[in-house]
Design a protein around this nucleic acid. Structure first.
Lengths: 141, 141
DNA sequence: ATTAGTGCAAACTATTTGCAATAAG
DNA sequence: CTTATTGCAAATAGTTTGCACTAAT
């Protein structure tokens, strides 16, 4: 089971950094690994609060900020209104459909890495447009 | 004078779209063309309110939103906290120095344009790191 | 037992909006 | 003169923070 190994890896990373493994941190980590959909903090909170009624939105925000600081997640600035979080930290591009809102990982697009003069620490590449699915639906009409 | 021609072009674009040329719109346009520094709405407002005391922050926000909708400016999501605006609408990449905060235009980096299946309407490529200037200062110590 | 982390509510920041007053054509 | 736009203040949305309580080690 891939998920168990991924979870263990992330937990070990937290342990190495002397970060306490708490219930919110654990369930958010599990959620992100099982739902790789680039959720917002609010979406994470809404998805988990039924099963964990004591979870607070503030803890979700704090946890996602912590994870991003530690490199466990990447903060995506695809939308102006709210940040999204990606548990897949292998550098890759994203495509957002302006029609249906869906966000796609583009693992095959290679990110430019060399920038003359400056030292690059991270790169974000965002595409916006109309996704294949929406294009198909339109041509059917 | 390059500036005059650029300004005329933008004003013509507004006229064609039947957008009224008002004082706020004109001075913000002039400001952006003469200070190509990717300012935030607040920075535009602070820079202009001395000379135009009647200008309001709300109008700056509304104007920058309008300009971006019309394609006169591009909204940059380099920072989570606030949007920045770029009057240079020729697609290009940006580099933000995490040390000094300066933002560089990277006109020589070519943006990937083809994405299998989906129709791309716009692309944003952001680099984060330490700029040449800061690297130099560090090595001097 | 000790310390880090949670959950709540309040605070904060960026941005948007309703509306009466104003300016552009 | 007519209608779009402004400026103000209030509202909104996302996110952060202070603090007493709780849980992890």
């Amino acid at each position: 089971m891939e998920f168990k190994k991924e979870l263990e890896d992330k937990i070990n990373l937290l342990r190495r950094k002397r970060i306490v493994i708490t219930t919110p941190r654990l369930i958010i980590l599990e959620y992100l690994l099982q739902n790789k959909v680039h959720p917002t903090a609010e979406e994470v909170y809404q998805s988990l609060k039924q099963r964990f009624p004591s979870l607070s939105l503030a803890s979700v925000y704090n946890t996602l900020k912590l994870f991003s600081r530690l490199g466990i997640t990447t903060e995506l600035l695809l939308d102006k209104e709210k940040a999204r979080y990606d548990i897949n930290t292998i550098p890759h591009a994203h495509f957002k459909c302006l029609n249906c809102g869906k966000i796609y990982d583009l693992l095959d697009i290679k990110l430019p890495q060399k920038v003359t003069g400056h030292k690059v620490l991270s790169t974000q590449l965002y595409f916006y447009g109309v996704c294949q699915e929406c294009l198909k639906k339109r041509s059917n009409k």
